[in-house]
Design a protein around this nucleic acid. Structure first.
Length: 103
DNA sequence: AACCTGACTTCGG
DNA sequence: TCCGAAGCCAGGT
């Protein structure tokens, strides 16, 4: 994998429980604001093998990107287990849960 | 090397 | 708010 991908993995693994981050923000922290799509690719490929907290990643609109029947329910459940309030359509209050560590 | 594929994002209507 | 188009990125074929 590329150095950039390694950075993404490192950042993803550091998202604390009870918080969420977005594809774009992670790409930004890794040094490339426009690589949001790469983040989704990384999650799909490495989440299981590396036990990534993939469920803590949502889109810039503050909603779960996965479709119902294709992971949506699981992600919603995992987030709620961490105390995060998720609306019926996957809406999450970014002002309240967004991980702001360094930015 | 060319072309396709996303769990994306931003912008305009 | 919703929809489509365009931009962008690394990997896989």
């Amino acid at each position: 994998m590329t150095e950039f991908t390694a950075k993404l993995l490192s950042i993803i693994k550091s998202i604390p429980m009870g918080s969420v981050s977005t594809y774009g923000r992670i790409a930004n922290l890794a040094g490339n604001p426009r690589a949001a799509r790469q983040v989704s690719w990384v999650l799909r490929v490495y989440s299981e093998k590396l036990s990534l907290p993939w469920h803590r990643i949502i889109n810039s609109r503050g909603r779960i990107s996965l479709r119902k029947g294709q992971g949506f329910e699981l992600q919603k459940a995992l987030l709620e287990e961490e105390g995060i309030i998720v609306g019926h359509n996957g809406e999450i209050d970014l002002n309240k849960y967004l991980w702001n560590d360094n930015l």
